[in-house]
Write a protein that binds this DNA or RNA. Structure first.
Lengths: 241, 241
DNA sequence: TAAATAGTGTCTGTAAGACAGTATACT
DNA sequence: AGTATACTGTCTTACAGACACTATTTA
């Protein structure tokens, strides 16, 4: 079923195209990475052969809400079922899609690298991870370069005062591993002592046993108390400078 | 003109309804207030006679972007041309509008009470300001209660660490007036000394002459250096407690 | 002068930054 | 023992909270 039979008079004016796009982040090999999808080259769709954010049209029969739509696309591309997923905002206008007035609802997701297996999908689309700086320098399809930059800015901004990077790690994780993740996302070193005090005083983790087996002194591992939201710290990092 | 003739094959699947809604805030009479519009009672549209946020369908011929659409609706209702306007997020799903799958792009705006004249609009719609708590207890049309609560939460959250309340005042304004605005939005008193240090150290205002004429010692008045964005403070208020 | 409002100074508390030091594993 | 990694302690600095104090106007 599609439109009318709601009991209300039909709405006849033209409607915009509606899409959902997702900026999926992970930390892999000491770099913040983002998932991109290559648009098919031999097609009559716009931007053939260009890299783009994963996403697509809302399916009003399949997707109950925008969030459901985002979760579905995320699952299809990475197999991840319960990521950290947050809305970034929406972009809409007459010019951003050559097929007509369109509005996209953009989400961003944080995914532990280990938890994930890439899936090409039914149409064998090419899918790959790129370091965000390299991805940002590419000419992405549509206005996806702008969406990506906004997502990176939002992530970096929130990392200054939240526990978001914990969602980029498999549980349980150690404090040194978490600190490394912060440093990769922020692109700078943070002081170990201040970092540990902040994380432990935050009270958002619980101990999950010692981790041995590697070189050096064993580390305590931790688990998040609440995987549904990030903890907020009372100040940003580097407030001094 | 409406859809095809883009050179791309037509997209035939059904499209959601697309709207823009705006939460307009002002401070009036020691209270944070929000603008609501009464939906016509004798009509075949949904939620007749209910109060709702100002907004409506995107007009793909008139509105170049979502932001333009929001600015147009704001101008139509209040006459304000250059408010503080920020996107709150988007809400979409099959159930929120009985006429079909719909997605709304929600913005919030900060408006100085003095700068504004209410306009009923062409269809003589009833328009009024309500204290946010009272508005939140009403049964608003659609999911507008949810949108309103999200906007209030976002505003209160950002006021803890930004200069946002300055956009609720006509320029120039005095520090006592600004402090009063903070207290109204936050719903609690803030310390005068700490408040003044924070604002003056922020460096986002410039002096605009002494204001005399009322009872008591005259106050220095200030103007914003940059009306396009709010200043960020290094900590939130009340970090101690 | 009194009342009202604007503005300052001083002390304390919290948490971050810097950085040196200690602890516990493996080879 | 030596090295690598995990973790702690101590000193300083930035800034908010509390609250008492001074300053400048009008009635």
């Amino acid at each position: 079923m599609s439109t009318p039979s709601s009991g209300f008079p039909p709405l006849t004016f033209p409607r915009p195209l509606v899409t959902v796009d997702i900026v999926m982040f992970t930390v892999l090999g000491d770099a913040l990475q983002v998932l991109l999808v290559k648009r098919p080259a031999d097609t009559d769709e716009p931007f053939p052969g260009k890299w783009a954010l994963p996403g697509g049209f809302v399916n009003i029969d399949e997707d109950a809400t925008l969030l459901d739509c985002a979760l579905r696309k995320l699952r299809e591309k990475t197999g991840v079922v319960t990521p950290y997923l947050e809305q970034l905002g929406s972009w809409g206008g007459a010019q951003r899609d050559p097929r007509g007035w369109s509005a996209t609802h953009c989400f961003y997701a944080l995914i532990p690298a280990q938890a994930m297996q890439l899936r090409s999908g039914a149409n064998a689309t090419e899918v790959a991870w790129f370091e965000v700086d390299a991805a940002s320098r590419k000419r992405l399809a549509f206005d996806h370069g702008e969406l990506l930059d906004a997502a990176v800015a939002r992530l970096r901004g929130k990392v200054e005062y939240t526990s978001l990077p914990a969602f980029l790690l498999e549980e349980p994780f150690t404090l040194p591993a978490l600190q490394h993740t912060y440093e990769v996302v922020l692109g700078r070193a943070v002081d170990k002592s201040a970092f540990r005090k902040r994380m432990l005083d935050g009270g958002f983790m619980e101990e999950a046993g010692m981790v041995t087996g590697s070189l050096g002194r064993p580390a305590m591992s931790y688990r998040l108390r609440d995987r549904s939201q990030a903890a907020l710290f009372p100040r940003t990092f580097n407030a001094t400078k």
